[in-house]
């Protein structure tokens, strides 16, 4: 693989890797650092790339491992990613509605951030990135059963919180 094909094939995955790293680290600068490190590693190990079936999942796995390393060296476990608001302006929504939705989204961000790490990872890969179960297994190095259990628990936990809001308006 030469630099050009690396730029065309591998580098475009940067945003996915960035979001995944951000999910772990909760800090954009740290996440960016990790993604850089991932690309350098992938570049240095590019001979192996032909043997890797799904190189994107491979990159995601490296991102996961490096992010966990980073968390360990930082010796602080950041469980809540910074939610810097969402721009959801839409013609069909009144300003009041969009503020309301924005608040709800921030709350959901907090619920997800409060989930145990594995559940958070699985939920991110499935619901945000839209990976198949097989790919999630490959990325997280878990078996199918573990992936499904973690996703189930994550969704149930979020659902419970949502039901409480609906019931008590909290």
């Amino acid at each position: 693989m030469n630099i050009e094909s690396f730029q065309n094939r591998v580098l475009p995955a940067k945003n996915k890797l960035f979001r995944f790293a951000l999910r772990f680290l909760g800090n954009e600068e740290e996440a960016k650092d990790v993604v850089q490190e991932v690309f350098i590693r992938v570049w240095n190990g590019r001979e192996q790339m032909n043997e890797v079936q799904n190189w994107e999942a491979w990159c995601m796995r490296i991102t996961k491992n490096l992010s966990l390393d980073r968390i360990r060296t930082l010796s602080r476990k950041q469980t809540h990613p910074l939610e810097d608001g969402y721009d959801i302006r839409q013609e069909s929504l009144s300003p009041h509605e969009s503020t309301e939705i924005q608040e709800s989204m921030n709350r959901i961000g907090q619920y997800i951030a409060a989930l145990p790490e594995k559940q958070r990872q699985v939920m991110h890969l499935r619901d945000v990135e839209g990976y198949s179960y097989n790919e999630i297994c490959e990325i997280l190095e878990l078996d199918m059963n573990q992936v499904k259990v973690n996703l189930f628990r994550a969704r149930q936990a979020v659902r419970e919180k949502l039901m409480k809001i609906n019931a008590y308006g909290l």
Partner: peptide, 23 residues
């Protein structure tokens, strides 16, 4: 309403990108 906010949250999160032109 809240469920909708959750799906929106997923979608908005997917839009998040590395904000660095020089990356």
């Amino acid at each position: 309403k809240e469920t909708a906010a959750m799906f929106r949250y997923f979608e908005e999160n997917k839009k998040k990108s590395l904000n660095d032109v020089a990356f």
